[in-house]
Design a protein around this nucleic acid. Structure first.
Lengths: 240, 240
DNA sequence: TGTAAAAGTTTACGGTGTTTACGAGTGCTG
DNA sequence: CAGCACTCGTAAACACCGTAAACTTTTACA
């Protein structure tokens, strides 16, 4: 016993290090050789191991990929949060701008990771419980970054919200607000969802190459969308 | 020679039939057993052939999948166009509503096909010319359905467009309008792009399961988004 | 009818995820 | 300190996979 404070045991530390190496190796293979190159044999080969050894850490390749996606999502989240902080303290304007642009910047810099995180992964065409897994939790952490910023904006300046929220919509959104204790009226949540839809739509279309039918530089399109959302929120447009 | 009119030869007909069977078989495997089940061996097995025989029709599995994606995209396009026609002749209102809802309906009914078409397929993490291939052309046909409807709407009633289009944006969009002879001002094209971003964003987020953090039925969210886009276009909202 | 192209098969190579059985090392415990 | 259980890793094997080459059968046409 070398340390008085009983931290993680030696075995646990080694195991954690191996897990981290597995994920970083898988990540490197993903970005250098594409999604199809992420195989158990390739990972183990790079690590100087044999493929079945990886089964001591993940029950299947799909499960490994699920954890990789969660890590990639967290990296994206951390980048956005860091960029937001550069824009100033919590109640400073422009944090949402910085965050939205950071989302696009990260996605353009990591298109393969973006596809891995945000494209379909109801893998295997089966029943598969939709609401679980580490990548889903990572998705919640991602959403929290923008939602918290949205809450701060709402508390600072009440932007105009939909005067009339349909009953069907209220029934869907109110339970969510209650469950997580979000201090937002349903109308504001609707605006948040709309803003997120537009941000995701613009970035995803660009990353997936569905805007390259004649548009060389998508930046002006993105900025126009950003300006339109900003106008809806009643905040003045800030050029990058 | 059995027919006087020299149509496609017997061999060409057989070949076309085989190609069609290959694609329908691949499609069936895709929806029943998932993307990973679409293999040359599985397709040939179902067709009572051997795997290398498929190389007489496609140079690789990836090429076969590319053609499959094009066919799936065309099926989506055809469904949307047909649903639009149900809403009335070219200049009747509600065709855009019907089309947008048809896009969501088809996507929800064919989530795996949707992912195959609209998710990332810059396969293989390489150079790969982005602007070619049958699925890209199919994407153009898809876009044309909505764009033509948009042009008709513009010619029927001039909806309000962005009063000021930034110079950077104009430089990107004007060449596209000129190249394809689209009778639309850049401001209207910007509105079209914004509408498409929102439609795609809403549907993709739903299909990919990124809205199921507490929202059971996404329909009201989608309808709210639709109503907001409609308001921007200056057309009255029509409930489904 | 002969001949050349097309269509399909056989065989083979290297790769994959995954299971099973086995061995070496680690750490706790009586 | 001895024993033992548990962890980590390997080796062999199975059933797949995409793809290439050589070979055979079928088809169409001069």
């Amino acid at each position: 016993m070398t340390s008085a404070t009983t931290g993680p045991s030696r075995r646990e530390r080694l195991r954690a290090a191996t897990v981290a190496e597995i994920l970083t190796t898988a990540h490197r293979l993903l970005v250098t050789d594409g999604p199809t190159a992420v195989t158990l044999r390739a990972i183990s080969r790079e690590m100087g191991m044999t493929a079945p050894a990886l089964y001591r850490y993940y029950p299947s390749l799909e499960d490994l990929m699920e954890h990789l996606r969660a890590q990639l999502s967290d990296e994206c989240t951390a980048y956005i949060a860091a960029e937001m902080d550069k824009a100033g303290p919590v109640d400073s304007p422009g944090r949402l701008y910085q965050g939205a642009r950071a989302f696009r910047t990260w996605s353009k810099a990591h298109p393969i990771e973006f596809a891995e995180i945000f494209a379909a992964h109801e893998h295997g065409a089966g029943d598969g419980h939709p609401e679980d897994g580490p990548s889903h939790e990572a998705g919640m952490r991602f959403a929290a970054v923008f939602l918290n910023e949205f809450i701060a904006l709402w508390q600072r300046q009440r932007f105009p919200i939909a005067e009339h929220v349909s009953e069907e919509l209220r029934v869907q959104l109110q339970p969510f607000l209650d469950q997580f204790g979000v201090p937002l009226p349903v109308g504001a949540l609707q605006v948040f969802l709309s803003a997120w839809i537009r941000l995701y739509g613009a970035v995803a279309l660009e990353i997936f190459g569905h805007l390259h039918f004649g548009i060389a530089d998508v930046t002006p399109v993105f900025e126009a969308e950003l300006a339109d959302v900003a106008a809806r929120l009643g905040v003045e447009y800030q050029a990058p």
